[in-house]
Structure formats: structure tokens, C-alpha cells
Nucleic acid binder design. Structure first.
Lengths: 182, 207
DNA sequence: GCTTTAAAAAGTAACCT
DNA sequence: AGGTTACTTTCAAAAGC
């Protein structure tokens, strides 16, 4: 019933050692470093298609992965590339998922104006002038869901896939309870 | 003790000075936007409430004034878009929007989402269209709403298309460009909304 | 608050033919 | 009139302004 698709996973970790970003930029293809603009070096790899941010402190942020498994694969590849380019990584990176973005579908058209007025106390924001989606903030799980007139949704802020499922189920239940959806 | 009094006087002066500045800025913007007195008074009331709740901390007076005006227009049923408000302010659209969200939250202002119908009178007046066109547009918008043709679409764009269609039906035709300029949307948007409304509401327009 | 990254949703906008 | 690209919204981490 709840077709949920993970679209993006953001995770962080640390290589446990300081990095010479200038040297890495020159050694790796696909590495961009503009300290004037941003303190992190951007390293893109094609498989899994991701963009990893490397910081002088050794802290790492991986974005773009389509699954939790891809995050591990991507970070392992980045570490391997760094070693090939002379930098030896001594520790096994402990990965922390920071955010999961997923899409889902209620498979029914929704009247956003009615939803905003009916459930519009503290958790709903709907400004069609600015953005077509209704912003729905949940406390438990602590995520934000964008609900569109088509019934399609985007859930962000989740730490684990289960948060997305719970959020979608919770919203569907609330809409049904208010007869805003069958 | 004398010090204490002097400080109170200083604070009092600063508070009064800021309030005076805010109200003059509010009046300047309201005049530039051609807003009626009731909207100005509502905005001033909202601004005073914001001051009383210390919502100005970390924000500019001009930003809070602009957001107060934006909120007042909506509360009075004669909304202006954030772009229109920003056009008369030194503060950008993005910040006015943020301040507006913050204020509605803190002051518990429960404003309804803006609807296309809220713009019909103003746009028709600027286009010098008759009450007949306004009524026709209102009729179209009512049907559009019932058939879920307004969810997620920009209210001004839907209103513009309904007015464009009505102007043709009532033989008071305005071009897409004329309506687009008044509504602050592009001709492409009017064309898209026009196509959807005529097709899904079964309106036949013979050009 | 900003800067940078990625990604989806649906609408609107900008630019080019 | 189309078509393509791009921006709007949401989220989190990183280091530093």
C-alpha cells in the first residue's frame, strides 16, 4: 500500500585525521575545492552517483545516495580513492545517517485548501502563491512532509526509513479521519 | 535612583522613536501600495502586538512593518502578493515571508490561504472591467474550486485566467498581456490556466 | 543567517527557436 | 506556441564568516 521510495540520503562520518584539501583536489579527478566559497572539498563519484564533502578536520558528508547501502559503498570508494591518491585512512568510518528524503503517493487528489483549514492549527503551512505543496510538520516522527494536490508527497528529515512509513501512515490516517481522503 | 529614572526615560525615548519610525514607514508603504485606511489600521495594530511580544528582536523594523502590512491585507480580504509588498519595501520578499510566518505563529494569527476570488475585484478594477465580468469570473472560480482546479496553483494566475475568459465572454476582451501585467504573472501562466479551465469546465470560447 | 551538496514533488518563470 | 532549463519549498551535516 505505502509505496515509499528513498530519493536521497545524507550521512556524515569522520576519517579521524586531518586532510590536505589542496593536495586532494590536485590528486583526484572530480574534486572541486574553493575555500573562498565553501570550506569543504566536493568530490563526486558516478557509482553510486553521489557528492561527498571533505573537510580539513577529516569530517565527511555524503549526499545523493539512493539507499543506506549506497552510502556505505560510496564512502568506501571515497576512502579507497584517497588512499590511491596517497592519503592513508587508518580507521573504519562510523557512518551516521542525518537525513533521508523519500517520496510517496496517496494515489488520490487532495484539496489542499480544505486540509489547511481543517488541520491547519500549528502544523500546517499552505501558501500556494509561493509553493504548490502544503507543508506538514510532524512531531513524532520528527519529519516534514510536503503534500501536493495530486496526492504525491515528499518526506524529509527522517533518520531511518521507518520514520517515513510512520509519517505517511499517520498523515493518511489523519486525512481519512477528517474525511479529506477515502 | 536618578540614574534609574534617566535610563527609563532613555528606553522610553528609544521605544517611542522606533514606534514613530515604524508607523511612518508603515504609512509610506501603504500609500505607495494604495491601501485603504482600514488595512493601515489593522497593520498598525498587528505591528503594536508584535512590539508588545518582543518579536522585533533579531529582526529589522522594516521587515516587521512589511510583514504586518502583508498580514493586514490578507486579514482584510484584500491580499497583496509578497512580490507586491516587497516592491514597496527595502526588505526582500524572502525575509518578509519568513517574518510573516514567524509573526502568524507567535501572534496566533490564523489567516486562511489566499484564494483566486480575493484578487478579482482589484484586478478587474485595474483593467476597467464591469461588474458583469467580475460576476462571471466569480462563477468560473467557484466551479474551478469545486472541480479541484485550484489546489497548488498560484491564486493570482487562476484569477487572471478566469478574468481573461470572462472578459471575452462578456465582450469586454482584454489581451493576455494586459491581464498578465495587472496580475503579475506571465502570459504563459494565463495560457496554461486558461487551457485547463476551459477544457475541464467545458467553456467554449470562440475567438 | 549565509555559503555547498543531493533529491523529489508541481507550479511558475526565463530564455530560445 | 513550444521546449528546455531553472528556481520556489522541505531537511541535515560539515567549518567559518
Amino acid at each position: 500500500m505505502a509505496k515509499m521510495n528513498i530519493e536521497n540520503v545524507v550521512a556524515s562520518t569522520s576519517l579521524g585525521q586531518e586532510l590536505d584539501l589542496k593536495a586532494i583536489e590536485n590528486a583526484l579527478e572530480g574534486a572541486d575545492y574553493n575555500p573562498q566559497q565553501f570550506p569543504g572539498l566536493v568530490y563526486r563519484i558516478k557509482e553510486p552517483k553521489t557528492a561527498t564533502l571533505l573537510f580539513r578536520s577529516g569530517k565527511v558528508v555524503c549526499t545523493g545516495a539512493k539507499s543506506l547501502g549506497d552510502v556505505k559503498i560510496a564512502i568506501s570508494k571515497v576512502a579507497k580513492d584517497l588512499e590511491k591518491a596517497n592519503i592513508k585512512i587508518s580507521i573504519e568510518p562510523k557512518i551516521e545517517v542525518q537525513n533521508i528524503v523519500a517520496s510517496s503517493d496517496l494515489e488520490q487528489e487532495i484539496n489542499l485548501n480544505t486540509v489547511a483549514i481543517t488541520l491547519g492549527l500549528e502544523k500546517v503551512e499552505y501558501e500556494p502563491e509561493q509553493f504548490p505543496g502544503l507543508v506538514y510538520r510532524l512531531d513524532e516522527p520528527k519529519v516534514v512532509v510536503l503534500l501536493f494536490g495530486s496526492g504525491k508527497m515528499v518526506c524529509t528529515g527522517a533518520k531511518v526509513p521507518e520514520d517515513v512509513v510512520r509519517a505517511v501512515d499517520k498523515i493518511a490516517a489523519e486525512l481519512r479521519a477528517a474525511s479529506l481522503m477515502s | 535612583r536618578l540614574r534609574k529614572w534617566q535610563r527609563r526615560i532613555r528606553v522610553s525615548n528609544a521605544t517611542e522613536r522606533n514606534l514613530a519610525f515604524a508607523l511612518s514607514e508603515l504609512d509610506r508603504m501603504a500609500s505607495a501600495m494604495g491601501l485603504p485606511r482600514n488595512v493601515r489600521e489593522t497593520a498598525a495594530m498587528i505591528y503594536r502586538k508584535a512590539v508588545n511580544k518582543n518579536l522585533i528582536r533579531g529582526r529589522s523594523i522594516e521587515g516587521v512593518v512589511a510583514a504586518s502590512l502583508y498580514a493586514a491585507c490578507r486579514q482584510c480580504g484584500v491580499p497583496r502578493t509578497l512580490d507586491e509588498v516587497a516592491g514597496s519595501s527595502r526588505v526582500g520578499r524572502k525575509e518578509i515571508g519568513r517574518t510573516y510566518r514567524f509573526m502568524t505563529r507567535e501572534l496566533k494569527l490564523k489567516l486562511m490561504p489566499t484564494k483566486p476570488q480575493d484578487y478579482v475585484q482589484r484586478f478587474c478594477s485595474e483593467l476597467k472591467l464591469s461588474g458583469e465580468v467580475q460576476s462571471k469570473a466569480a462563477e468560473i472560480l467557484k466551479d474551478a474550486s469545486e472541480k479541484e482546479l485550484t489546489s497548488g496553483r498560484g491564486p493570482t494566475g487562476v484569477a487572471a485566467a478566469a478574468i481573461y475568459i470572462s472578459s471575452i465572454i462578456c465582450n469586454e476582451r482584454r489581451t493576455q498581456r494586459e491581464v498578465a501585467d495587472v496580475a503579475g504573472v506571465t502570459e504563459v501562466t494565463i495560457r496554461n490556466r486558461y487551457k485547463e479551465l476551459t477544457e475541464k469546465l467545458g467553456i467554449d470560447i470562440v475567438l
